[in-house]
Design a protein around this nucleic acid. Structure first.
Lengths: 198, 198
DNA sequence: GTCTATATGGCGATAGAC
DNA sequence: GTCTATCGCCATATAGAC
């Protein structure tokens, strides 16, 4: 059973993701958590502090999912495939996480951005750069790492928009299909240009 | 000189992009537009209608920028490079446009999404699919087109976040550098897999 | 077409009882 | 730790004069 504080936080994650910071009122949150507004203020000093705690709560434990990707002993190509698959799964399954992250990045508050980058994503980004260096030593690892994340992130984000475009097939919603496409594009794209001209 | 209505709309674009729908009050908008709240209600029936008009206003005329990309008589590879460059320029220069689009996609209101897809992006997406078909006839054009947009979009979006990660260099902010990287990755990635194994 | 004045209600936050 | 009641403010929206 969740404590009151945890109940508030888990409801806050869902509702902040859906409505944004200013779109969610303390009254609405209190109703959703089956508690009074005053009780929320017992656990959190103000709305902003609650929001920050909710962000941290939503992001906690995500690194664990990637651990097995990096720990596995397989080729760099296979590691890339597994990373893409893992990131895609997280994004698709936990829409709240994806949505909160998007809002945070868009708001671009420097302080919160730094918290996010250092506290949550830094390790994954470093490991991804290492992988990029194995796959394409002669290219810019930072740009490649960010491209990998970009492909997964934006594909998930634009799913609802892309449904309106021609050429859409049912299988475009399947994680395996998306993952295979992205991995294929990346692996092929990262091969040495020379090997194409033999 | 802008009419009052245009003045309201252009201020609304900036402020809705920055603060979101619920983050911007009619009072704030009235102040920014140097007009009274009641005057805004003379031009627009309510806040929601104003928002929709602002979206349409922000998106108007964007197709024109892409026209020269498609009209030029050059190779498919060169067209891809020009498209990436054009999209990147729009996204980087007009942050309001990019931000509004992001918020719209995130909100995922089906009705507005359809308006956006059909009214604004459909033609570009179709031309992009045609191009994908020229570059890699054996692959899924819809997936490729969305990947191209994804790479540009998310790279722009994550710029502020990526500044916090290691390996960041000053040139990673330059449009040419980003465009070259993305185009290279795509062109190499879309080559027939067979040609790599000869 | 623009203004001042105002209606009505929701907002974040607090006081104080239990 | 949770409640009811309330404060003061700002929100959207309207009425009616000029």
């Amino acid at each position: 059973m969740l404590s009151s504080k945890e109940k508030i936080l888990s409801e806050a994650i869902v509702l902040f993701a859906e409505k944004g910071y200013s779109g969610l009122s303390m009254r609405q949150l209190a109703t959703a958590a089956n508690i009074s507004v005053a009780a929320i203020y017992h656990h959190f000093p103000d709305k902003n502090a609650l929001y920050l705690d909710a962000i941290r709560y939503a992001f906690s434990g995500k690194e664990r999912v990637f651990a097995q990707v990096w720990e596995s002993e397989c080729s760099a190509e296979e590691k890339l495939a597994r990373f893409v698959r893992a990131l895609l799964e997280i994004m698709l399954q936990d829409r709240n996480f994806h949505c909160l992250m998007q809002r945070e990045i868009m708001e671009a508050n420097p302080e919160r951005m730094h918290l996010l980058a250092q506290g949550v994503f830094n390790q994954q980004f470093c490991l991804l750069m290492q992988l990029a260096n194995e796959l394409a030593p002669e290219q810019d690892a930072h740009l490649i790492a960010s491209s990998i994340i970009a492909l997964v992130d934006s594909t998930v984000k634009c799913q609802p928009l892309n449904k309106n475009f021609p050429g859409r097939k049912p299988e475009h919603d399947l994680p395996e299909v998306i993952a295979t496409h992205i991995t294929g594009l990346l692996l092929n794209g990262l091969k040495k240009v020379n090997t194409n001209a033999c």
